[in-house]
Every structure is written in structure tokens, then in C-alpha cells.
Design a protein around this nucleic acid. Structure first.
Lengths: 232, 232
DNA sequence: ATTTAAAATATTGTATACAAAATACTTGAC
DNA sequence: GTCAAGTATTTTGTATACAATATTTTAAAT
């Protein structure tokens, strides 16, 4: 929920003639989004202190909304609050990453199961489409775009599960892992096998083969650990 | 992490001669704890607006730390933020509860598996002890105490899994469900079967029978749904 | 009586100001 | 030169003040 809205930051608010009411983003929300981006992109390194006045000046906001954003991200687990000593960007150990992926495997397996049960054919076709586009980026070796669609597919499967709480927890884990994955997205990753697994994932989903989908997702994320282990 | 510290609120800070440094609780932290309690106990009903000045006066704090606490709980999912219109206590539908329990089943199954693998004999004996005490409360029909130890056992198993991120996500779900369970802890719940299942859970854990433990935990939480479904 | 518009009120959003810590620095002694 | 104590500075913690938005009330017109 909070994790994926991302209505601030990088999104370039294409000022088209949307029907709905114009989005009114509270400052603390916008600031939270920017901080998230800064953490993921490594502008704020793990362990770095977040000076309220400094960062506040940099973003052009006062301390009040900045502090509110910090509390929000602290609850999300991206920032650590040290009483009377401010906030630091959370440091994730190797075990942390392994543990996160362990949980993620379980969560995505569940999501896969529910997606098979609840997903409409239309939604599944949409995922296939994202997958096809991802393949194009893969062949063109456009890593950043590939990386983004890769994540998008996983999120899409979770959305298909039609379980808001599952999506929320998944989002938190993804958010925490994003920094690591961002680092990895340019490394000498074993790209080919990941792509192959994705192909299998889509196929299993289309066939609504619950058991197979769960197995592949599980294996895929086990592979993610191997792909990511080296770079930590 | 944020969910279980609970260093504020009800905890009666027994001023003994502990070795460690004395706890210094920031106001926003204490306020967050109190708000959590108020939500769980129904003092703040689902859908109720949280008037900053009003609640602030009631708790004897200014709006600044109160707002920080609200942002924190919003990220936790207990409170919903409506731009320019304040915060309301989140309302959970029947589907919400069902969805949460679906995820919880998956999470606790995983926890059970990891607990079998990682838990020390000592830790398992400690859980057995909590269980025995819970049985005493059960026989005495002391529902509130029973209810608390019940939760404690589940949390303890999760802790045994030695996976901080699993524990965190589990905590969030528990936190969201607490209100529902709090309502239910005095209802005409099928108490007997829950106790029986708990006995099986402990037995499986002691035998380190991973498969059986996972199965029982899963069934136990399915039962929790049935026990809770009626009261919503 | 009902609806609409306008004014008054209350409430949230944001910034600033003050208080209490923690950190950094200076000075002095050994 | 190193360490310690005390002072100065910085930084966080909390409260208040001001601005912008939403809600309610009031009054007028139909």
C-alpha cells in the first residue's frame, strides 16, 4: 500500500487530462517517497545518519514533515531510529538478505497459488505482455528497464492473488530488498537462467498449474539468493 | 520490531535494579504504543477520526509527537491517512480478516519449519512451560490471561525461527488482528479444540517433526478463522 | 420548507521557536 | 604528546504559531 503508490519522486506526473480529482500529496508523503528513492539508489548509504536540518534544506522542507516521513519509513524498516541520536539508514547483513528471501519465497509461493485460483484470464494475458516486453529489454541488454519489469511481474502476480495484506507484506520485503537488487542489476548476474525461469512461471500461470507455479517461484527466488549472494 | 517492543502503555516498568542503561522512550514512541492499545481495546473504534488536538490533550502531548506516532501507525496499517482530512482507525472487513489469516497460515508454517531446524532444546522447553501455564488458565477459565499466553506461544515459535524479517511481518499481521481477537476472547469460542491443537503443536515441536508441525499450525489457523468468523 | 451561498469555525498542514540532549572542540594538567 | 574536564556547538525532542483547507452554521432567495 504505502510501498507501491510512489506517487512522488521519479514519477513525472504526466499532466494529461485525467478524469479523477487531482492528486493532492501531503508533504510528508512526498518526502517519504524521495527518501525511499535516495536510499534505494544509494544516495543515502546504509549506516548514514539522516541530519534533519541538512536533508530538510536539501529537499526544501522544514523539519516537521521530514520527521513525519522518517517515522513512516522507520515503521517500514528502511530507517532505524536511535533515541536522542537521530535516524540512520538501516544496514542489512548477509543473513538479513537471506532471511528476507526465505520469507519472500513463502509469500510468493502463496501468491502464486492464489493467483492461479483467482486470476482472470485477462490479467494473466497482461502479465504475459509484460513478460514479452521484458524479453525485448533482455535481448537489448537494457538492464535497468529489464530489472524494473522483472520486479513488476512479481508484483503483478501478487496483485492477482487479490489479497491486500499479502501484497502489503510483499511490498515491505521488496522495498527492503530493492537496494540490494539495485546494486545487483548491473553485476555479472546469471541473467539467462532467471529469464528462463520467468518463462516457466508465466507458462505455469497460464496453465493454472498451481503446484508447478509454486515450485518454480520457490526455485526462482532460491536462485535470486545465489545471484545476489556474491555482491554483498 | 516496532510491534512487539511495547515498552510503553500497559507495561508497568518495574523499577528494579536492571543492569542495562535505563530506557529513554521518545514521546512519539510512547504515544504510538498508547494509540495501539486504544485501538486494540476498542477505545478508538474502527472508522473513528483521530482529532489531533483532542487526543493530544487527552494524552497530554502536543500535536507534533502525536502526528509522528500517527504516521508510524499508518505505515503499520492500523490507521488510515486521508489527505487534508486527518486520520481514521482502519476498518477491517470480513475479507480482510480472512486474507490476513491466509497469509498468517503461510507465515507460521514457515516459522514452524524454521523453528524445528533452528530452535534449541532449551527454547522449546520454555515454550512447553508457557503452554503448561496456559493450560492452567484454561482450566481456571481466566480468558484474558489464556488469550495472552496463547498469542505469546505463537510469537515464541516465530522467534525460534531466528528470522527477524519473518518476525516483523508476523508482528504486523498480529497487530492488525489483535483487535478482532480481543473482541473474540470473550465470545463462545470453541476453546477446547484450540487447546488440543496447541498440545499437538508443542508435541510436534518437541519431536522436531517439521512436516507435522507445519500441518498442525496450518490447521490451527484455519480453525482460528472459523472461531472468529461468527463474531464479525 | 428547501436549496444555495457566504461567512464563521474548526482542523489539518507546515514552519518556526525553544528546550534538552549529544557531539565536537578547547584548554589545561600530567 | 596524551588524556581529562569543561565549554561551545550542533542536533534532536517538543511545543507553539501561522497558513491552508475542510466543515459547519447562518442567512437569504426561491
Amino acid at each position: 500500500m504505502a510501498t507501491d503508490k510512489d506517487q512522488s519522486g521519479t514519477s513525472t506526473d504526466a499532466a494529461g487530462s485525467d478524469a479523477g480529482p487531482i492528486a493532492r500529496i501531503p508533504l510528508h508523503d512526498a518526502v517519504a517517497g524521495r527518501l525511499r528513492d535516495m536510499i534505494i539508489e544509494g544516495v543515502l548509504e546504509p549506516g548514514a545518519r539522516i541530519h534533519e536540518t541538512h536533508i530538510g534544506a536539501q529537499l526544501g522542507v522544514s523539519r516537521t514533515p521530514l520527521r513525519e516521513a522518517i517515522k513512516f519509513l522507520a515503521s517500514e524498516g528502511l530507517i532505524e531510529l536511535i533515541p536522542a541520536r537521530g535516524a540512520i539508514v538501516r544496514v542489512f547483513s548477509k543473513k538479513d538478505v537471506a532471511d528476507m528471501l526465505t520469507v519472500l519465497r513463502s509469500l510468493e509461493s502463496l501468491a502464486g497459488k492464489l493467483a492461479c485460483e483467482n486470476g482472470s484470464d485477462r490479467d494473466i494475458r497482461a502479465i504475459r505482455k509484460i513478460h514479452d516486453q521484458m524479453l525485448v529489454y533482455y535481448k537489448q541488454k537494457r538492464r535497468l528497464e529489464y530489472y524494473k519489469l522483472n520486479q513488476e511481474i512479481h508484483s503483478a502476480i501478487v496483485r492477482l492473488a487479490d489479497n491486500e495484506h499479502l501484497a502489503y507484506l510483499h511490498g515491505i520485503l521488496q522495498s527492503r530488498l530493492k537496494r540490494i537488487r539495485f546494486i545487483g542489476h548491473e553485476g555479472p548476474t546469471n541473467w539467462a537462467s532467471a529469464v528462463e525461469e520467468h518463462e516457466e512461471i508465466i507458462a505455469a500461470l497460464e496453465a493454472r498449474d498451481t503446484v508447478r507455479l509454486m515450485a518454480i517461484l520457490d526455485r526462482h527466488l532460491l536462485g535470486a539468493w545465489e545471484r545476489v549472494e556474491a555482491i554483498i
